[in-house]
Design a protein around this nucleic acid. Sequence first.
DNA 1: GATGAATGAGAGTTCATTCAT
DNA 2: AATGAATGAACTCTCATTCAT
Lengths: 193, 193, 193, 193
Amino acid sequence: MAKRSGEKNQVILDAAVKTFARSGYHRTRISDIAGQAGVADGTVYIYFNNKEDILISLFQNLMTRFVKELRSELAHCRNTNEKLETIIDYHLRTLGSKPEQARVTQIELRQIDQNINEGISKPLMSYFQLIEEVIEEGKKQALYRQEIDTRTARKVIFGAIDEVVTCWVMSTKPYQLSNLKNPLFELLVKGLQ
Amino acid sequence: MAKRSGEKNQVILDAAVKTFARSGYHRTRISDIAGQAGVADGTVYIYFNNKEDILISLFQNLMTRFVKELRSELAHCRNTNEKLETIIDYHLRTLGSKPEQARVTQIELRQIDQNINEGISKPLMSYFQLIEEVIEEGKKQALYRQEIDTRTARKVIFGAIDEVVTCWVMSTKPYQLSNLKNPLFELLVKGLQ
Amino acid sequence: MAKRSGEKNQVILDAAVKTFARSGYHRTRISDIAGQAGVADGTVYIYFNNKEDILISLFQNLMTRFVKELRSELAHCRNTNEKLETIIDYHLRTLGSKPEQARVTQIELRQIDQNINEGISKPLMSYFQLIEEVIEEGKKQALYRQEIDTRTARKVIFGAIDEVVTCWVMSTKPYQLSNLKNPLFELLVKGLQ
Amino acid sequence: MAKRSGEKNQVILDAAVKTFARSGYHRTRISDIAGQAGVADGTVYIYFNNKEDILISLFQNLMTRFVKELRSELAHCRNTNEKLETIIDYHLRTLGSKPEQARVTQIELRQIDQNINEGISKPLMSYFQLIEEVIEEGKKQALYRQEIDTRTARKVIFGAIDEVVTCWVMSTKPYQLSNLKNPLFELLVKGLQ
DNA sequence: GATGAATGAGAGTTCATTCAT
DNA sequence: AATGAATGAACTCTCATTCAT
């Protein structure tokens, strides 16, 4: 019953999400991750260079899938506003349904060393890119104001969603994250129009 | 010769801002702070309980002053929109002129342990409170839409400003942070109206 | 296709000489040797018990061949002084032409654990024996002084040659090792006469 | 009862000699040295950078004292042969009376990493220098043969003494090391004359 | 209050060795 | 015989914190 190649890689990443979410990045020891994954400490180092590498790989994994799936959802949208709504909805839905991933994304990932930072930037960029594309589209269609600075608008949109998620993660989660989609959408789309 | 009481406390906090900004919270050793402050390692422990305590005190100090001064600026505003503009302006102006403080606020402070978290929440809350007061005022004056959820609007406003500052901190700072006041204000105020 | 039995044994030993010479015994990992030999890590353990065993086998191999060939050269000598000269010549010639082996012999082999020590002593003893035979012969023929302590003389001879080789190994090798044969021979033979 | 400055440095070095001699350099853990010295593990790192640094410092200490004292003994010699005799005598006497130091010098020190190697070379050089001075003096006084290559002669002398010491260290020490002074001297001086 | 040498628990990482395939 | 993924014991080094002076 040989494990499929690459399977252990994923087992370790899954264990890392759980452990980082539970104890925080800096409090997590490699042996915690290994224990959670049911492998030996040394095995972790066969698949990853070090703790930082795990955190980065984790995020790159999540983010790559995130952007890919979001792009495929956007493909079904009939207009730009629907696209903006989809971005907000997908973002809240995805993180709202995976509190552990959300905690890692919102909190642990910000334990920024320069290296981590670089490993994080690139996958994030493609999400930023996607948001900016939608804004540009809206401007081209005269749906959004021409004088809007795309870059700044993207920061507003991402910053707003991100803050909403962070607040939810830090809270005792007495509400559904995705309930905030509509108020968020209204505030943002009005800002753009 | 006799130093005024509390002076050394401030010397250490100033040294901590510098050192945290330069090396990051986790990479900063107490001896680095002590060295920068020109005191012995042990002296740090006369004024603070531990490393975490320094970071929290730091933030509480900054935040208390921040909110106090912001409130006094708001007192001079003639209407609600001007107040919103002042919040954005003051936030960007303050952090834009103190890159080290900005780095600590935006990055290092997020190295959250539960304890730090609580130490941070309280002073932040009073800033949130202040933002929400302005939103409520706008709603009362029918300047802003009635159906807006104040809490969510506050998250959007704070999240947007915060993201803008973080991007600037992480960048090579090729632009003035306060240049972003106007586009930010436009996007946010339109969202509320 | 079928490799001759024992061939892989030699492949591994050859790889070990190279790797020990390049990186030193303690810095060499089994996987380095395996890689250099083009076999799997585990294969090394089919042929050798452990890392120490490789080093010892290596030396025993070299030393056995060394003494055997030296004995056959000595068989052609016409007198005792010529034998002494041949010993020096052969020693310098052999190691001088194989810098990697020389490095292992002079340096890496001295990373002595008790076990290695014993594995080394025995093959060395037969070389010592050979030198002592020549000294005894010279004494019997009244060519060398009677009061000379054979054991001590052997240590002087071996120690001198060994030091000369070690210096060469540690140097950037700007000279031929065998150039030192004559001066070495003169000093040693005069000491014996 | 403040310990004199630098005292703990010496305590650690003394402990290191004992421990290296007992267990060998590579088998010795920092905690072994610390334990033997009666200090905490971390304390070792206040005084030394790492294990290598301890070994090098150790040798530099010993060698510096060795050469200094040997030079002062040589000052009392009435002729060159007496100087040669003194070198041999002092070398055998010093190491013969300190078996632990001898073991470290003869065996453990040869665990050569490049760094250790460099740290060792310099202090050794001054010993080599001293031997060569004596040989040169003998040549100038026509006591020793003119055609002798000083460098090679030094290697013969040092190599011979060194081998004698190593043999003794590796043995069960059933004889006094300094008993070998006379036979060694006779062999070496005759070689030079 | 101030000092800074000393502490020692703690964590990341390595790698010789094993063994199921 | 050969493989190489997995193991886990072992060890170095760091640094927040203490406390005698």
